[in-house]
Amino acid sequence: MTTTPAIDGWFTSGDLPALLGSRCGLCATVFFPRLDGFCRNPACSGEEFETVELSRRGTVWSYTDAQYQPPPPYIPRSENHEPFAIAAVELAEGLVVLGQVADGYGVADLRVGAEVELVVEPLYTDETGDRTIWRWKPVVELGAEADQ
């Protein structure tokens, strides 16, 4: 059994995981998910892109959760649905990226403007083993934990 990303080429794993975007060689606009072919900036004729790691930290644009099990092709992790939170996160590159929220955190741990950090965690398990995905984890400032 191995641990592999649930989708190829969208994020890196390891100690400091990051989302992988494309940066246009001509206008430097960053895109996520990665882009092939033609730059989407209407004023740019760029056709070549460099793969870049996006900021590992960002601020919460908004958040919610899934209290009911989503329909297929979502693959449930267990027989009984466990609600999970979802956040839209604004990165320094000027874009907002969705992601589930790290295990153990819910909407009560989030607010608009709060800082979060990218982690990689198991999404589901198939015949090859754990399949992973990027998630947003609240950054708890020193001392804040004790206050709660």
């Binding site: 960053v30 895109f31 874009l95 907002v96």
Partner: peptide, 18 residues
């Protein structure tokens, strides 16, 4: 750039250059 997250997208456009 379209800067509000919308169904069914994973991300918005970046406002970093335009």
């Amino acid at each position: 750039p379209q800067t509000v997250i919308e169904m069914p997208n994973f991300a918005t456009d970046s406002s970093g250059t335009v």
